[in-house]
Design a protein around this nucleic acid. Structure first.
Length: 423
RNA sequence: GGAGACGUGACUGAGCGGCCGAAAGUGCAUCCCUGCUAAGGAUGUGAUGGGGUAAACCCAUCCGUGGGUUCGAAUCCCACCGUCUCCGCCA
Protein backbone atom coordinates (compact mmCIF):
# COMPACT_ATOMS: atom_id res chain seq x y z
CA UNK A 1 0.00 0.00 0.00
CA UNK A 2 1.08 3.49 -0.78
CA UNK A 3 2.05 5.97 1.95
CA UNK A 4 -1.01 8.10 2.67
CA UNK A 5 1.16 10.98 3.85
CA UNK A 6 2.89 11.00 0.48
CA UNK A 7 -0.48 10.86 -1.23
CA UNK A 8 -1.72 13.92 0.70
CA UNK A 9 1.49 15.84 0.12
CA UNK A 10 2.02 15.00 -3.53
CA UNK A 11 -1.16 13.73 -5.15
CA UNK A 12 0.15 14.61 -8.61
CA UNK A 13 3.00 12.16 -8.23
CA UNK A 14 0.47 9.41 -7.61
CA UNK A 15 -1.78 10.55 -10.44
CA UNK A 16 1.19 10.33 -12.81
CA UNK A 17 1.95 6.90 -11.46
CA UNK A 18 -1.60 5.75 -12.15
CA UNK A 19 -1.45 7.09 -15.70
CA UNK A 20 1.88 5.43 -16.45
CA UNK A 21 0.42 2.12 -15.29
CA UNK A 22 -2.67 2.59 -17.38
CA UNK A 23 -4.78 2.87 -14.22
CA UNK A 24 -7.34 5.52 -13.38
CA UNK A 25 -5.83 8.70 -11.87
CA UNK A 26 -9.24 9.69 -10.47
CA UNK A 27 -8.85 7.02 -7.79
CA UNK A 28 -6.36 9.38 -6.17
CA UNK A 29 -9.11 11.90 -5.53
CA UNK A 30 -11.42 9.23 -4.24
CA UNK A 31 -8.76 8.18 -1.77
CA UNK A 32 -8.15 11.77 -0.70
CA UNK A 33 -11.84 12.31 -0.13
CA UNK A 34 -12.27 9.06 1.79
CA UNK A 35 -9.21 9.92 3.85
CA UNK A 36 -10.60 13.35 4.71
CA UNK A 37 -13.91 11.78 5.69
CA UNK A 38 -12.10 9.27 7.84
CA UNK A 39 -10.15 11.93 9.66
CA UNK A 40 -13.25 13.99 10.30
CA UNK A 41 -15.10 10.96 11.62
CA UNK A 42 -12.13 10.04 13.74
CA UNK A 43 -11.93 13.49 15.30
CA UNK A 44 -15.63 13.31 16.11
CA UNK A 45 -15.29 9.92 17.73
CA UNK A 46 -12.23 10.96 19.71
CA UNK A 47 -13.93 14.06 21.08
CA UNK A 48 -16.96 12.07 22.19
CA UNK A 49 -14.82 9.36 23.64
CA UNK A 50 -12.75 11.87 25.61
CA UNK A 51 -15.92 13.30 27.09
CA UNK A 52 -17.12 9.84 28.00
CA UNK A 53 -13.89 9.06 29.74
CA UNK A 54 -13.85 12.20 31.84
CA UNK A 55 -17.51 11.74 32.78
CA UNK A 56 -16.75 8.15 33.65
CA UNK A 57 -14.23 9.30 36.21
CA UNK A 58 -16.81 11.57 37.81
CA UNK A 59 -19.24 8.67 37.99
CA UNK A 60 -16.69 6.71 39.93
CA UNK A 61 -16.37 9.48 42.51
CA UNK A 62 -20.00 10.57 42.75
CA UNK A 63 -22.57 9.36 45.27
CA UNK A 64 -26.35 9.06 45.56
CA UNK A 65 -28.59 11.23 43.39
CA UNK A 66 -25.66 12.95 41.77
CA UNK A 67 -24.37 9.59 40.62
CA UNK A 68 -27.74 8.61 39.19
CA UNK A 69 -27.90 11.85 37.22
CA UNK A 70 -24.44 11.31 35.81
CA UNK A 71 -25.26 7.75 34.90
CA UNK A 72 -28.26 8.89 32.91
CA UNK A 73 -26.08 11.27 30.92
CA UNK A 74 -23.31 8.80 30.31
CA UNK A 75 -25.72 6.17 29.08
CA UNK A 76 -26.81 8.48 26.32
CA UNK A 77 -23.25 9.36 25.56
CA UNK A 78 -22.27 5.71 25.38
CA UNK A 79 -24.64 5.17 22.49
CA UNK A 80 -23.30 8.23 20.70
CA UNK A 81 -19.73 7.04 21.17
CA UNK A 82 -20.57 3.63 19.78
CA UNK A 83 -22.23 5.22 16.79
CA UNK A 84 -19.29 7.55 16.18
CA UNK A 85 -16.86 4.68 16.42
CA UNK A 86 -18.78 2.62 13.91
CA UNK A 87 -18.80 5.58 11.53
CA UNK A 88 -15.08 6.15 11.95
CA UNK A 89 -14.28 2.46 11.52
CA UNK A 90 -16.33 2.27 8.34
CA UNK A 91 -14.65 5.38 6.96
CA UNK A 92 -11.21 3.95 7.78
CA UNK A 93 -12.04 0.67 6.07
CA UNK A 94 -13.22 2.46 2.95
CA UNK A 95 -10.17 4.73 2.82
CA UNK A 96 -7.81 1.78 3.21
CA UNK A 97 -9.63 -0.29 0.63
CA UNK A 98 -9.37 2.53 -1.88
CA UNK A 99 -5.75 3.27 -1.00
CA UNK A 100 -4.85 -0.39 -1.46
CA UNK A 101 -6.15 -0.32 -4.98
CA UNK A 102 -3.40 2.12 -5.93
CA UNK A 103 -0.32 0.48 -7.40
CA UNK A 104 3.19 1.28 -6.27
CA UNK A 105 4.85 4.31 -7.82
CA UNK A 106 7.26 3.25 -10.58
CA UNK A 107 10.89 4.22 -10.20
CA UNK A 108 12.18 6.98 -12.44
CA UNK A 109 13.28 5.44 -15.72
CA UNK A 110 10.61 2.77 -15.90
CA UNK A 111 9.06 2.86 -19.36
CA UNK A 112 5.36 3.63 -19.34
CA UNK A 113 2.91 1.49 -21.25
CA UNK A 114 1.91 -2.15 -21.26
CA UNK A 115 3.28 -5.63 -21.71
CA UNK A 116 5.00 -4.89 -25.02
CA UNK A 117 6.53 -1.57 -24.03
CA UNK A 118 9.51 -2.94 -22.14
CA UNK A 119 13.04 -1.68 -22.72
CA UNK A 120 15.73 -4.18 -23.64
CA UNK A 121 18.71 -3.35 -21.44
CA UNK A 122 21.23 -5.77 -22.96
CA UNK A 123 21.86 -9.11 -24.57
CA UNK A 124 24.36 -11.55 -23.09
CA UNK A 125 25.69 -14.57 -24.92
CA UNK A 126 24.81 -15.41 -28.50
CA UNK A 127 22.20 -17.99 -29.48
CA UNK A 128 23.85 -20.91 -31.25
CA UNK A 129 23.60 -21.20 -35.00
CA UNK A 130 22.09 -24.68 -35.02
CA UNK A 131 21.81 -24.81 -38.80
CA UNK A 132 25.51 -24.12 -39.17
CA UNK A 133 26.24 -26.84 -36.64
CA UNK A 134 24.05 -29.26 -38.51
CA UNK A 135 21.72 -29.74 -35.59
CA UNK A 136 18.04 -30.22 -36.25
CA UNK A 137 16.44 -28.27 -33.43
CA UNK A 138 14.09 -30.22 -31.20
CA UNK A 139 11.97 -28.71 -28.49
CA UNK A 140 12.59 -29.41 -24.82
CA UNK A 141 9.90 -32.06 -24.59
CA UNK A 142 11.26 -34.07 -27.50
CA UNK A 143 14.73 -33.86 -26.03
CA UNK A 144 13.45 -34.65 -22.57
CA UNK A 145 11.55 -37.67 -23.77
CA UNK A 146 14.66 -38.86 -25.56
CA UNK A 147 16.48 -38.71 -22.24
CA UNK A 148 13.50 -40.27 -20.43
CA UNK A 149 13.56 -37.14 -18.31
CA UNK A 150 10.02 -35.82 -18.74
CA UNK A 151 6.76 -37.78 -18.78
CA UNK A 152 3.78 -35.59 -19.65
CA UNK A 153 1.38 -38.44 -20.47
CA UNK A 154 1.55 -39.98 -17.05
CA UNK A 155 1.41 -36.51 -15.50
CA UNK A 156 -1.91 -35.99 -17.27
CA UNK A 157 -3.13 -39.45 -16.30
CA UNK A 158 -2.43 -38.88 -12.63
CA UNK A 159 -3.21 -35.18 -12.24
CA UNK A 160 -4.47 -33.73 -15.51
CA UNK A 161 -3.25 -31.19 -18.01
CA UNK A 162 -0.16 -29.13 -17.15
CA UNK A 163 1.13 -31.78 -14.76
CA UNK A 164 4.18 -33.91 -15.41
CA UNK A 165 6.65 -36.33 -13.94
CA UNK A 166 10.33 -35.61 -13.98
CA UNK A 167 11.99 -38.99 -14.14
CA UNK A 168 15.51 -40.28 -13.81
CA UNK A 169 17.93 -37.72 -15.18
CA UNK A 170 15.12 -35.18 -15.39
CA UNK A 171 14.58 -35.32 -11.64
CA UNK A 172 18.31 -35.19 -11.04
CA UNK A 173 18.69 -32.25 -13.39
CA UNK A 174 16.01 -30.25 -11.62
CA UNK A 175 17.65 -30.94 -8.29
CA UNK A 176 21.01 -29.95 -9.77
CA UNK A 177 19.71 -26.60 -10.99
CA UNK A 178 17.95 -25.84 -7.72
CA UNK A 179 20.91 -26.94 -5.64
CA UNK A 180 23.27 -24.82 -7.71
CA UNK A 181 20.90 -21.88 -7.29
CA UNK A 182 20.64 -22.44 -3.56
CA UNK A 183 24.39 -22.70 -3.32
CA UNK A 184 25.03 -19.48 -5.24
CA UNK A 185 22.48 -17.60 -3.14
CA UNK A 186 24.12 -18.91 0.01
CA UNK A 187 27.52 -17.76 -1.20
CA UNK A 188 26.06 -14.32 -1.88
CA UNK A 189 24.84 -13.98 1.69
CA UNK A 190 21.30 -15.34 1.53
CA UNK A 191 20.06 -17.52 4.35
CA UNK A 192 18.74 -20.83 2.94
CA UNK A 193 15.09 -21.30 3.83
CA UNK A 194 12.53 -23.99 3.11
CA UNK A 195 9.13 -22.40 3.41
CA UNK A 196 5.52 -23.44 3.97
CA UNK A 197 3.52 -23.66 0.75
CA UNK A 198 0.10 -23.48 2.39
CA UNK A 199 -0.61 -20.12 3.97
CA UNK A 200 -3.41 -18.44 5.82
CA UNK A 201 -5.60 -15.82 4.15
CA UNK A 202 -3.98 -12.97 6.09
CA UNK A 203 -0.58 -13.91 4.72
CA UNK A 204 -1.78 -14.21 1.16
CA UNK A 205 -3.69 -10.95 1.36
CA UNK A 206 -0.75 -9.20 2.97
CA UNK A 207 1.52 -9.91 0.05
CA UNK A 208 -1.00 -8.44 -2.35
CA UNK A 209 -1.68 -11.55 -4.38
CA UNK A 210 -5.40 -11.65 -3.66
CA UNK A 211 -6.02 -8.59 -5.78
CA UNK A 212 -5.82 -8.87 -9.53
CA UNK A 213 -4.21 -12.29 -9.39
CA UNK A 214 -6.74 -14.00 -7.11
CA UNK A 215 -7.88 -16.21 -9.99
CA UNK A 216 -4.36 -17.59 -10.31
CA UNK A 217 -4.29 -19.00 -6.82
CA UNK A 218 -5.35 -22.39 -5.52
CA UNK A 219 -7.62 -22.16 -2.50
CA UNK A 220 -8.50 -24.97 -0.11
CA UNK A 221 -11.98 -24.22 1.06
CA UNK A 222 -12.21 -26.85 3.78
CA UNK A 223 -9.19 -25.43 5.52
CA UNK A 224 -9.41 -21.80 4.42
CA UNK A 225 -5.83 -21.88 3.16
CA UNK A 226 -4.04 -20.88 0.00
CA UNK A 227 -1.35 -22.68 -1.96
CA UNK A 228 1.47 -20.28 -2.71
CA UNK A 229 2.54 -19.46 -6.25
CA UNK A 230 6.01 -18.54 -5.00
CA UNK A 231 7.93 -18.68 -1.74
CA UNK A 232 7.91 -14.87 -1.84
CA UNK A 233 4.56 -15.15 -0.08
CA UNK A 234 5.97 -17.04 2.88
CA UNK A 235 9.18 -15.02 2.97
CA UNK A 236 7.33 -11.71 2.93
CA UNK A 237 5.04 -12.96 5.67
CA UNK A 238 8.01 -14.22 7.68
CA UNK A 239 8.61 -10.87 9.37
CA UNK A 240 5.02 -9.57 9.21
CA UNK A 241 4.06 -7.35 12.14
CA UNK A 242 7.66 -7.14 13.28
CA UNK A 243 10.12 -4.34 13.86
CA UNK A 244 13.33 -5.69 12.37
CA UNK A 245 16.93 -4.63 12.76
CA UNK A 246 18.69 -3.72 9.53
CA UNK A 247 21.69 -1.97 11.06
CA UNK A 248 23.91 -4.87 9.96
CA UNK A 249 22.58 -4.63 6.39
CA UNK A 250 19.65 -6.22 4.57
CA UNK A 251 18.09 -9.46 5.82
CA UNK A 252 18.51 -11.89 2.92
CA UNK A 253 16.69 -15.18 2.46
CA UNK A 254 16.81 -17.80 -0.27
CA UNK A 255 13.52 -19.69 -0.26
CA UNK A 256 13.11 -23.13 -1.77
CA UNK A 257 9.56 -24.24 -2.38
CA UNK A 258 7.04 -25.88 -4.62
CA UNK A 259 4.90 -23.30 -6.40
CA UNK A 260 1.30 -23.75 -7.51
CA UNK A 261 -0.50 -21.77 -10.17
CA UNK A 262 -3.93 -22.28 -11.66
CA UNK A 263 -2.95 -20.69 -14.98
CA UNK A 264 -6.60 -19.65 -15.23
CA UNK A 265 -6.07 -17.00 -17.88
CA UNK A 266 -3.63 -18.88 -20.07
CA UNK A 267 -5.72 -21.59 -21.70
CA UNK A 268 -4.07 -22.60 -24.96
CA UNK A 269 -0.76 -20.88 -24.18
CA UNK A 270 2.41 -22.90 -23.81
CA UNK A 271 0.46 -26.13 -23.71
CA UNK A 272 3.34 -28.34 -24.78
CA UNK A 273 5.91 -29.51 -22.28
CA UNK A 274 6.79 -27.92 -18.97
CA UNK A 275 7.02 -24.24 -19.88
CA UNK A 276 3.75 -23.39 -18.17
CA UNK A 277 2.60 -25.84 -15.51
CA UNK A 278 0.46 -25.94 -12.39
CA UNK A 279 3.24 -27.04 -10.09
CA UNK A 280 6.96 -26.45 -10.16
CA UNK A 281 9.90 -25.71 -7.93
CA UNK A 282 11.67 -22.44 -7.44
CA UNK A 283 14.53 -20.90 -5.52
CA UNK A 284 13.66 -17.32 -4.72
CA UNK A 285 15.83 -14.57 -3.27
CA UNK A 286 14.14 -12.20 -0.88
CA UNK A 287 15.55 -9.19 0.99
CA UNK A 288 14.37 -6.73 3.55
CA UNK A 289 16.37 -3.51 3.18
CA UNK A 290 16.44 0.15 4.15
CA UNK A 291 14.23 2.07 1.76
CA UNK A 292 17.21 4.05 0.46
CA UNK A 293 19.17 0.84 -0.23
CA UNK A 294 16.39 -0.84 -2.19
CA UNK A 295 17.54 0.10 -5.69
CA UNK A 296 21.08 -1.05 -5.02
CA UNK A 297 19.78 -4.31 -3.61
CA UNK A 298 17.60 -4.73 -6.67
CA UNK A 299 20.63 -4.33 -8.93
CA UNK A 300 22.41 -6.88 -6.80
CA UNK A 301 19.59 -9.36 -7.35
CA UNK A 302 19.78 -8.84 -11.08
CA UNK A 303 23.52 -9.41 -11.12
CA UNK A 304 23.17 -12.66 -9.17
CA UNK A 305 20.51 -13.85 -11.57
CA UNK A 306 22.80 -13.06 -14.47
CA UNK A 307 25.62 -14.85 -12.74
CA UNK A 308 23.45 -17.95 -12.58
CA UNK A 309 22.43 -17.67 -16.23
CA UNK A 310 26.05 -17.26 -17.30
CA UNK A 311 27.07 -20.23 -15.20
CA UNK A 312 24.50 -22.29 -17.06
CA UNK A 313 25.89 -20.89 -20.31
CA UNK A 314 22.52 -19.68 -21.53
CA UNK A 315 22.08 -16.79 -23.97
CA UNK A 316 19.65 -14.25 -22.56
CA UNK A 317 18.48 -10.67 -22.61
CA UNK A 318 17.49 -8.37 -19.76
CA UNK A 319 14.35 -6.30 -19.98
CA UNK A 320 13.11 -3.37 -17.93
CA UNK A 321 9.40 -4.03 -17.62
CA UNK A 322 6.95 -1.24 -18.49
CA UNK A 323 4.85 0.35 -15.76
CA UNK A 324 1.63 -1.28 -16.89
CA UNK A 325 3.15 -4.75 -16.67
CA UNK A 326 4.52 -4.33 -13.16
CA UNK A 327 2.68 -6.15 -10.43
CA UNK A 328 0.82 -3.73 -8.19
CA UNK A 329 3.54 -4.07 -5.53
CA UNK A 330 6.53 -3.46 -7.77
CA UNK A 331 8.18 -0.11 -8.46
CA UNK A 332 10.52 -1.71 -10.97
CA UNK A 333 10.91 -5.15 -12.45
CA UNK A 334 13.76 -6.67 -14.43
CA UNK A 335 13.18 -9.93 -16.25
CA UNK A 336 15.88 -12.15 -17.69
CA UNK A 337 14.71 -14.03 -20.74
CA UNK A 338 16.59 -17.02 -22.07
CA UNK A 339 16.61 -17.88 -25.74
CA UNK A 340 14.16 -20.60 -26.73
CA UNK A 341 15.56 -22.14 -29.92
CA UNK A 342 12.54 -24.27 -30.79
CA UNK A 343 10.27 -21.23 -30.92
CA UNK A 344 12.93 -18.68 -31.79
CA UNK A 345 11.78 -16.36 -29.05
CA UNK A 346 12.79 -15.16 -25.62
CA UNK A 347 11.32 -16.89 -22.58
CA UNK A 348 11.18 -15.42 -19.09
CA UNK A 349 13.33 -17.40 -16.66
CA UNK A 350 13.87 -14.87 -13.90
CA UNK A 351 12.00 -11.87 -12.60
CA UNK A 352 13.18 -9.51 -9.91
CA UNK A 353 11.01 -6.82 -8.40
CA UNK A 354 11.77 -3.89 -6.14
CA UNK A 355 8.62 -3.40 -4.09
CA UNK A 356 10.11 -0.48 -2.14
CA UNK A 357 8.01 0.00 1.00
CA UNK A 358 4.71 -0.94 -0.65
CA UNK A 359 4.55 -4.56 0.42
CA UNK A 360 6.08 -3.98 3.85
CA UNK A 361 3.61 -1.24 4.67
CA UNK A 362 0.77 -3.65 4.04
CA UNK A 363 2.47 -6.39 6.05
CA UNK A 364 3.42 -3.95 8.81
CA UNK A 365 7.16 -4.61 8.66
CA UNK A 366 9.18 -1.73 10.05
CA UNK A 367 12.57 -0.74 11.38
CA UNK A 368 13.52 1.77 14.02
CA UNK A 369 14.22 5.27 12.76
CA UNK A 370 15.59 8.39 14.41
CA UNK A 371 12.09 9.15 15.48
CA UNK A 372 9.63 6.28 15.61
CA UNK A 373 9.65 3.62 12.93
CA UNK A 374 9.56 3.45 9.15
CA UNK A 375 8.50 0.83 6.66
CA UNK A 376 11.31 -1.26 5.17
CA UNK A 377 11.70 -2.13 1.50
CA UNK A 378 11.30 -5.64 0.10
CA UNK A 379 12.99 -7.04 -2.97
CA UNK A 380 12.41 -10.44 -4.56
CA UNK A 381 13.93 -12.30 -7.48
CA UNK A 382 14.16 -15.70 -9.09
CA UNK A 383 17.42 -17.59 -9.16
CA UNK A 384 16.27 -20.96 -10.44
CA UNK A 385 13.11 -22.80 -11.42
CA UNK A 386 11.90 -25.95 -13.09
CA UNK A 387 11.43 -23.91 -16.25
CA UNK A 388 15.18 -23.50 -16.54
CA UNK A 389 15.23 -27.15 -17.64
CA UNK A 390 13.53 -26.01 -20.82
CA UNK A 391 16.21 -23.46 -21.63
CA UNK A 392 18.96 -25.82 -20.63
CA UNK A 393 17.79 -28.78 -22.71
CA UNK A 394 17.10 -26.71 -25.81
CA UNK A 395 20.20 -24.53 -25.81
CA UNK A 396 22.57 -27.36 -25.01
CA UNK A 397 21.11 -30.04 -27.28
CA UNK A 398 23.41 -31.92 -29.63
CA UNK A 399 22.80 -33.52 -32.99
CA UNK A 400 22.81 -37.02 -31.51
CA UNK A 401 20.13 -36.21 -28.93
CA UNK A 402 22.58 -35.81 -26.08
CA UNK A 403 22.69 -32.66 -23.98
CA UNK A 404 25.74 -30.74 -22.85
CA UNK A 405 26.01 -30.17 -19.08
CA UNK A 406 27.50 -26.86 -17.90
CA UNK A 407 30.30 -27.28 -15.44
CA UNK A 408 28.41 -25.79 -12.51
CA UNK A 409 25.87 -28.64 -12.61
CA UNK A 410 28.28 -31.53 -12.99
CA UNK A 411 29.05 -32.01 -9.31
CA UNK A 412 25.36 -32.74 -8.78
CA UNK A 413 25.22 -35.22 -11.67
CA UNK A 414 28.13 -37.48 -10.99
CA UNK A 415 30.48 -35.38 -13.09
CA UNK A 416 28.98 -36.21 -16.49
CA UNK A 417 29.63 -33.79 -19.34
CA UNK A 418 26.80 -34.98 -21.59
CA UNK A 419 23.40 -36.46 -20.80
CA UNK A 420 22.85 -39.39 -23.14
CA UNK A 421 19.54 -40.40 -24.73
CA UNK A 422 17.99 -43.64 -23.52
CA UNK A 423 17.07 -46.16 -26.21
C1' G B 1 -9.68 -36.80 18.06
C1' G B 2 -10.49 -36.17 23.91
C1' A B 3 -9.07 -33.30 28.59
C1' G B 4 -6.71 -29.23 30.72
C1' A B 5 -3.44 -24.78 31.29
C1' C B 6 -1.89 -20.41 29.19
C1' G B 7 -1.30 -15.87 25.60
C1' U B 8 0.54 -8.46 29.01
C1' G B 9 5.95 -3.89 26.36
C1' A B 10 12.82 -5.94 23.31
C1' C B 11 12.69 -10.05 27.29
C1' U B 12 11.10 -12.13 32.29
C1' G B 13 6.91 -11.18 35.01
C1' A B 14 2.83 -8.55 38.40
C1' G B 15 -1.85 -6.78 37.63
C1' C B 16 -9.09 -5.83 43.20
C1' G B 17 -14.22 -3.65 36.61
C1' G B 18 -12.81 3.00 37.36
C1' C B 19 -6.67 5.70 40.65
C1' C B 20 -3.55 0.82 34.43
C1' G B 21 -0.32 2.23 28.76
C1' A B 22 0.15 -0.94 32.59
C1' A B 23 4.27 -2.59 39.05
C1' A B 24 9.00 -4.82 39.46
C1' G B 25 13.24 -6.86 37.29
C1' U B 26 16.45 -7.71 32.98
C1' G B 27 18.22 -5.54 28.68
C1' C B 28 19.22 -1.01 26.13
C1' A B 29 20.61 4.52 25.83
C1' U B 30 22.76 8.82 28.07
C1' C B 31 25.27 10.78 32.20
C1' C B 32 28.07 10.38 37.02
C1' C B 33 31.84 7.77 39.68
C1' U B 34 36.48 5.17 39.43
C1' G B 35 44.29 4.55 36.19
C1' C B 36 41.49 0.80 32.47
C1' U B 37 37.89 -3.03 33.06
C1' A B 38 34.42 -5.04 36.45
C1' A B 39 31.14 -3.34 40.19
C1' G B 40 28.09 0.93 41.69
C1' G B 41 24.79 5.42 41.19
C1' A B 42 21.27 8.87 38.37
C1' U B 43 17.96 9.62 34.46
C1' G B 44 15.47 7.89 30.41
C1' U B 45 13.38 3.89 27.47
C1' G B 46 6.39 0.85 23.48
C1' A B 47 3.42 1.29 19.04
C1' U B 48 -0.39 3.47 15.86
C1' G B 49 -3.52 7.41 14.38
C1' G B 50 -5.22 12.56 14.77
C1' G B 51 -4.28 17.76 16.08
C1' G B 52 -0.34 21.34 16.68
C1' U B 53 4.75 23.22 16.46
C1' A B 54 10.95 25.39 15.09
C1' A B 55 10.35 22.32 19.27
C1' A B 56 7.56 21.31 23.45
C1' C B 57 3.01 19.32 23.79
C1' C B 58 -2.32 17.67 23.62
C1' C B 59 -6.07 13.86 22.40
C1' A B 60 -7.62 8.92 21.03
C1' U B 61 -6.54 3.75 20.29
C1' C B 62 -3.70 -0.75 21.38
C1' C B 63 -2.56 -6.05 27.11
C1' G B 64 -3.16 -12.88 20.93
C1' U B 65 -7.63 -11.63 17.21
C1' G B 66 -12.79 -10.51 16.78
C1' G B 67 -17.45 -9.90 19.10
C1' G B 68 -20.46 -9.15 23.68
C1' U B 69 -21.87 -7.41 28.88
C1' U B 70 -21.21 -2.45 31.38
C1' C B 71 -21.88 4.52 32.32
C1' G B 72 -16.76 2.34 32.30
C1' A B 73 -12.98 -3.92 30.41
C1' A B 74 -5.92 -6.00 30.44
C1' U B 75 -9.52 -7.57 34.34
C1' C B 76 -16.29 -10.60 33.26
C1' C B 77 -18.72 -13.68 28.95
C1' C B 78 -18.47 -16.01 23.86
C1' A B 79 -15.97 -17.45 19.36
C1' C B 80 -11.53 -17.92 16.75
C1' C B 81 -6.06 -18.18 16.34
C1' G B 82 -1.66 -19.76 18.68
C1' U B 83 1.53 -22.15 22.53
C1' C B 84 2.23 -25.93 26.21
C1' U B 85 0.90 -30.56 29.10
C1' C B 86 -1.61 -35.30 29.48
C1' C B 87 -4.45 -39.27 26.90
C1' G B 88 -5.64 -41.53 22.21
C1' C B 89 -4.18 -42.26 17.04
C1' C B 90 -0.43 -42.45 13.19
C1' A B 91 4.58 -42.77 12.09
Amino acid sequence: MIDLKLLRAEPDLVRDSQRSRGDDPAVVDQVLEADAQHRAALADFEAKRAEQKSLGKEVAKAQGDEKQALLARTKELAAAVKQAQATADAAAARAIELARSLGNIPEPGVPSGGEDDFTVLRHEGAPRDFAAEGVEVKDHLAIGEGLKAIDMERGAKVSGARFYFLTGIGARLELAILNAAMNLAFERGFSPTITPTLVRPETMAGTGFLGKHAEEIYYLERDDMYLVGTSEVALAGYHADEIIDLTEGPLRYAGWSACYRREAGSAGRDTRGIIRVHQFHKVEMFSYAHAEDASAEHERFLSIEEEMLKALELPYRVIDTAAGDLGSSAARKFDCEAWLPSQERWMEVTSTSNCTTYQARRLNIRERADKGTTAVATINGTIGTTRWLVALLENHQQADGSVYVPEILRPYLGGVEYLQPVA
